[in-house]
Amino acid sequence: MVVAWVREETTPYGGSLVDQDGLWKKVIGELFEDFLLFFVPELHAQIDFGKSPDFLDKELFQEIADKKKGRRFADRLAKVRLKNGKEQWILIHIEVQSKKETNFPERMFQYFYRIYDRHQEKIVAIAVHTSPSKNAIPDRFTYDYLGTQLHYMYRNYQTEAYSDEELEQSDNIFSKIVLAAKALYQTKDEEHQRYLFKRKLMRELIRNQNYTRTAVQAVFHFIDYLLQLPDAYTKQLSEEIRSMIRKETELMELYNKENASPTIKNVFDLELEKGIEQGIEQGVKKVVLEMLRKGTSTDFIAEVTHLEKDEIEKLREMLQ
């Protein structure tokens, strides 16, 4: 059994709340293999990913409960098959830490012994912190009282420990999730910088032929909701992404509109809108040409169609 804890809090932006724990839960489920490969490659090497993991989140939620009032967290419980044929549980408690808590190591131990006591499984515990702070976060819990001692350590990772350059150069698509998590704080008060970051990352994901469209859509969904933008920037981003996707051969057909992120949904809507506009434009041109053939005056056509007179004259020249 593997336990990965990631702690997260909702973050306000533009008057709305970002459900970060929900986003992490979703993206870890969709990019489960990439998540493990990024943080725990030695564990990843033991798993047979030819067999899809079974997620049993309801069972996890019932068994592990934080009694502290108001605490929000997401959970992932997966049952996988190892390459040696054995069945193994991977338990992920998503609790992305955004601020320092003195009792965090103790809580890590409490989750450990609850799981161990219930299932008697070997457990690898992982803590992932998304705080922008570079201060070291404790990776152990110790207890020493009248000769009774306890020393518990767990895997500890901080997104801030990964440089932007390292994440940009990584081939693992989950590195882009970590990069976006860092950008949440880096662009907190810089709307234009956030827009530039999203545009750059989306362009790179679209152009990278090594990533499946399903994986790309999972990352798009994460960064679109995590890194929210004002409406004007959102519209501009959709226009630019639309222009790029249309240049790539048949890329539009590779995106599933039903599961698309807001930006990609806007791209589909823009395509529909432009298609309707083009259809109307072609229909108007046909009507104008027919009116010109019948000798209708330019002034009358302009009054009826609301076209500029120079446009009508260009159509007249086409007939001649």
Results as ranks from 00 to 15, higher is better:
residue 125 A to C: 07
residue 234 T to Q: 15
residue 206 I to M: 09
residue 67 K to T: 12
residue 139 D to W: 06
residue 158 Q to F: 06
residue 268 F to E: 06
residue 26 K to G: 03
residue 7 R to H: 09
residue 166 E to G: 00
residue 169 Q to W: 01
residue 197 F to C: 00
residue 119 H to E: 08
residue 17 L to A: 13
residue 50 G to I: 01
residue 88 Q to R: 07
residue 209 Q to L: 05
residue 318 M to V: 12
residue 281 E to L: 11
residue 114 R to P: 06
residue 305 T to R: 11
residue 176 K to T: 14
residue 47 I to F: 02
residue 64 I to G: 08
residue 255 Y to L: 14
residue 94 I to E: 10
residue 3 V to K: 07
residue 274 K to L: 15
residue 14 G to K: 10
residue 71 R to Y: 08
residue 238 S to K: 08
residue 17 L to E: 13
residue 4 A to N: 06
residue 38 F to A: 11
residue 141 F to I: 05
residue 240 E to M: 02
residue 97 Q to R: 08
residue 260 A to R: 01
residue 304 V to C: 03
residue 227 L to A: 09
residue 174 F to H: 11
residue 266 N to S: 06
residue 224 D to I: 10
residue 67 K to N: 13
residue 100 K to D: 01
residue 149 Q to F: 14
residue 224 D to S: 09
residue 69 K to H: 12
residue 25 K to V: 10
residue 161 A to E: 15
residue 139 D to I: 03
residue 1 M to D: 09
residue 232 A to E: 08
residue 276 I to G: 03
residue 101 E to T: 01
residue 203 R to G: 13
residue 87 E to Q: 04
residue 96 V to G: 11
residue 307 L to P: 07
residue 100 K to W: 07
residue 306 H to R: 08
residue 249 T to C: 04
residue 200 K to D: 11
residue 169 Q to R: 13
residue 38 F to T: 05
residue 115 I to N: 02
residue 53 P to M: 00
residue 116 Y to A: 08
residue 176 K to R: 14
residue 250 E to P: 01
residue 135 N to Q: 12
residue 18 V to H: 11
residue 286 K to G: 04
residue 133 S to G: 03
residue 17 L to D: 13
residue 156 N to K: 15
residue 32 F to G: 04
residue 59 E to I: 02
residue 262 P to T: 09
residue 92 I to G: 05
residue 79 K to W: 03
residue 23 L to T: 03
residue 90 I to K: 00
residue 38 F to H: 10
residue 40 V to A: 10
residue 188 K to A: 14
residue 301 I to M: 13
residue 152 Y to P: 15
residue 64 I to F: 12
residue 309 K to E: 15
residue 59 E to Q: 14
residue 62 Q to C: 05
residue 316 R to N: 11
residue 124 V to I: 13
residue 119 H to L: 04
residue 95 E to W: 01
residue 202 M to W: 00
residue 201 L to K: 03
residue 306 H to A: 02
residue 248 E to C: 05
residue 199 R to Y: 06
residue 41 P to Y: 11
residue 202 M to L: 09
residue 1 M to A: 06
residue 217 Q to I: 00
residue 194 R to T: 02
residue 46 Q to Y: 05
residue 136 A to G: 01
residue 279 G to A: 00
residue 13 Y to N: 15
residue 132 P to E: 07
residue 312 I to H: 02
residue 121 E to I: 03
residue 77 L to C: 03
residue 185 Y to I: 00
residue 1 M to C: 03
residue 136 A to S: 05
residue 79 K to N: 03
residue 291 M to A: 15
residue 281 E to S: 13
residue 172 N to D: 09
residue 101 E to P: 01
residue 277 E to Y: 04
residue 319 L to A: 01
residue 306 H to D: 06
residue 131 S to Q: 00
residue 10 T to W: 07
residue 207 R to T: 09
residue 29 G to M: 00
residue 307 L to T: 06
residue 195 Y to W: 04
residue 80 V to K: 02
residue 114 R to Y: 09
residue 37 L to T: 06
residue 117 D to Q: 12
residue 46 Q to R: 10
residue 84 N to H: 06
residue 56 L to P: 01
residue 246 R to K: 14
residue 319 L to G: 09
residue 147 G to Q: 12
residue 286 K to T: 14
residue 207 R to K: 12
residue 93 H to K: 05
residue 19 D to H: 14
